[in-house]
Design a protein around this nucleic acid. Structure first.
Lengths: 75, 75
DNA sequence: AATTATTGTTGTGTTAACACAACAATAACG
DNA sequence: CGTTATTGTTGTGTTAACACAACAATAATT
């Protein structure tokens, strides 16, 4: 399971602690998710997606995300 | 957490056993999910959504889904 | 009516997603 | 330089999402 939590989080100017408070989990949990140490529950994934106002599929994927450079080049 | 698994499943002509095999879980697990006895992992939710080829948000929601009648009336 | 498929219920066991604490390493800032 | 914020690491404990088994109830099929 790949994710772009860190990407969205830093762009939003949030620390892990900030995001953790926003979605109501322990700050360590955000770190574990970003590193891929464990996979989120659907509930947590939905809260994170809601926080950045994007669909879940933009943040979580079974296949690797393309680089930001490539994505912007395509857009 | 509300879901429309049963709705999509029956429309697709699948039994719980069928869907369970398609997303590689125990048939009981589908029953538990449909009844709301427990919430899916993100991984399972994504597999189910992929099975019906719709975004996760069409199947799972924090708020109740409108009735099929209302949805069709609106469309 | 008999058989088979589907669904629901109960129970037990395992694993991983969490919470929480403590501390080290590094980065940012006064 | 000293302080503070941020991130990473390790460890322990709890809970819920699963697997699996057995069986009852109902629906569908022959």
């Amino acid at each position: 399971m790949y994710n772009r939590i860190a990407l969205f989080r830093t762009e939003a100017g949030l620390s892990r602690k900030d995001l953790a408070e926003a979605v109501d989990v322990n700050p360590q949990t955000i770190g574990y998710l970003e590193r891929g140490d464990y996979k989120p529950s659907l509930e947590l994934a939905m809260k994170i997606a809601a926080q950045f106002d994007v669909p879940i599929e933009l943040i979580f994927s079974f296949t690797p995300f393309e680089s930001v450079a490539d994505a912007l080049r395509r857009s």
